[in-house]
């Protein structure tokens, strides 16, 4: 029987990857979601090369060990994979911070290897990027998931492994911090 992988849901594709090591199913998932998860990784770690590496690492992890996805009938593939990508991005950021010192975020945004990426952003965009990157880690994740990835509070809370109330509190604080920061920059 010939299977059209494009018609299968993410979860059905994952089951095929798990049970049969179906490379076509894996390829379909990669083609379907790479762009979306690249954007998510970039928002956590605003560097094009690093964001691409993070997405690649996440997908290869999935291919090498598909059993880490638990199909209990409720788990949505994308929600689960956001968690993988977010955690990897945090790992990369922490490694970078440890090797480059506390001002590494500014360097990531302004200089070095990411200069070419940032040139494409206008000054306002850079200011917003800097303000978001200066948020505490969990506030930044909450903001990225809810505002930029447009996930529901429930999904974002699930990804972050916290309650909805705690997520709402993080969002409130992120919003207040951003306001203060941007106001300080003359917005």
């Amino acid at each position: 029987m010939i299977i059209d992988h494009e018609t299968l849901s993410d979860e059905q594709l994952m089951i095929r990857v798990q049970q049969n090591a179906d490379h076509k199913a894996f390829s379909a998932l990669v083609s379907r979601h790479t762009r979306m998860f690249y954007a998510a990784a970039y928002r956590m770690y605003p560097n094009q090369d690093e964001a691409e590496d993070i997405v690649q690492e996440a997908f290869l992890k999935l291919w090498r060990r598909p059993e880490i996805w638990k199909s209990d009938g409720k788990a949505k593939f994308t929600t689960w994979f956001y968690r993988i990508v977010t955690n990897l991005a945090i790992d990369h950021l922490r490694k970078k911070k440890n090797t480059k010192g506390s001002d590494s975020l500014d360097r990531i945004i302004d200089n070095g290897e990411s200069a070419q990426d940032v040139m494409e952003l206008d000054e306002q965009g850079k200011a917003v990027e800097r303000a978001v990157q200066q948020l505490p880690e969990r506030q930044k994740i909450a903001l990225n998931l809810c505002f930029y990835e447009e996930l529901s509070n429930k999904e974002a809370a699930e990804i972050m492994d916290i309650g909805v109330k705690a997520l709402e509190s993080l969002l409130m604080r992120a919003k207040a911090s951003l306001r203060d920061n941007l106001r300080g920059q003359g917005w």
């Binding site: 790479t34 762009r35 690249y38 954007a39 970039y42 928002r43 094009q48 964001a51 691409e52 997405v55 690649q56 990426d117 494409e120 952003l121 206008d122 306002q124 965009g125 917003v128 990027e129 978001v132 903001l143 505002f147 930029y148 951003l178 941007l182 917005w187």
Partner: peptide, 14 residues
């Protein structure tokens, strides 16, 4: 303001 934050295009062959 937040919507001004941009993500550069990924490389097409990723």
């Amino acid at each position: 303001i937040l919507s001004k934050r941009a993500v550069p295009e990924m490389r097409s062959n990723l």
